[in-house]
Design a protein around this nucleic acid. Sequence first.
RNA 1: AGGCCAGUAGCUCAAUUUGGCAGAGUGCCUGUCUCCAAAACAGGAGGUUGCGAGUUCGAUUCUUGCCUGGCCUGCCA
Length: 328
Amino acid sequence: MVKKGRVFSGARPTGRQHLGNYFGAISNYVALQEEYDCVYCIVDLHALTTLESTRDLRKNTLEMAWDWLAAGIDPVKSIVFVQSMVRQITELHTILSMVTPLGKLTDLPTFKEKVRENPHNINYGLVGYPVLMSADIVLYKSNFVPVGIDQSPHIEFARETVRSFNFRYNTNALIEPQAKFTSFPKIMGIDGVNKMSKSLNNDIEIAATPEETTKLVMQMVTDPQRQRRSDPGNPDVCNVFSLHKIFTSPEQVASINSECRRAGIGCVDCKKMLAANMNDYFTPLRARRMEFQKDPDVTWDMLRDGAKRASVIAETTMVEVRKAIDLP
RNA sequence: AGGCCAGUAGCUCAAUUUGGCAGAGUGCCUGUCUCCAAAACAGGAGGUUGCGAGUUCGAUUCUUGCCUGGCCUGCCA
């Protein structure tokens, strides 16, 4: 089968993944595998820019890999690996940093945001984050990078870096990637206010047990106006309802919509249905994950195998890059 | 390399003046109330005060060495 080109995506090893990760990225990764050559990378070096301790780094890498594999990211169809396993990334990062004006880096919104979040640890690597990201993309000769609209400055940065390199060394060794925008449903946390996020502690892990899932769903914030069971509710402002749209059949969604508005069902009823549907949805994924969890070495071997395949592409790129620069 | 400032609960910071039981706000957990949640109220957990040494009856506080971060100066390239 002829594929439409190569897709690259990297994600920091944040451990067990939640609903936001799943519907924002993972399920898209799975879908893209059919039509594209996909390279999916757990970017542990990127994580070092903001990590104060690496104690949990391996564990978080493994936990995320398990969620990816269980979700259907196929290590045979796609190349799945850990960033640091392919050493060429650091070489290309260094080389690309030499064609990068510092001002471009400090102007990026993400950098300013990180500075605000973490003002006591502004390290060199953090500033160069987009350079490393660009290196990731071009090292594997990627054509497309699936991103949300908020990431478009970074892809534009990568494109400029490629043009800058190719022009300076009079080559076409590096391929200019394109952003591949996908509209993801925005998953709100159980607080109903913020985007679902591990650090805000408002997330539901896809691999949580049915009991944990149900407990968290029952804790979700609902329409604050609906105080009593007999009050009519407004699904339009209720985060439980927005999750129903993802996990629940259209018929049942329609029924919940109208029953909530006429106080035919209460929030407890509504949440119980959601938890049940959510657990049904993730049952096969959780079963597959359990299999992987039995032997971590199997997963590490898969990742190392992915790294081996990635290295072949990486070295091809680096041979061209070194030649263009005329490095010995 | 030198000078100055800072480091206290997950986070933001008090307490240091004049050494005397290490606190508040916020977040987190529990309870009451709610169909659930929210809000409100009540309760609870959370600390090697960056690390070590010294002075002292007693050190978050004073002295000193080190670590980390920030600002300034110098030096090398």
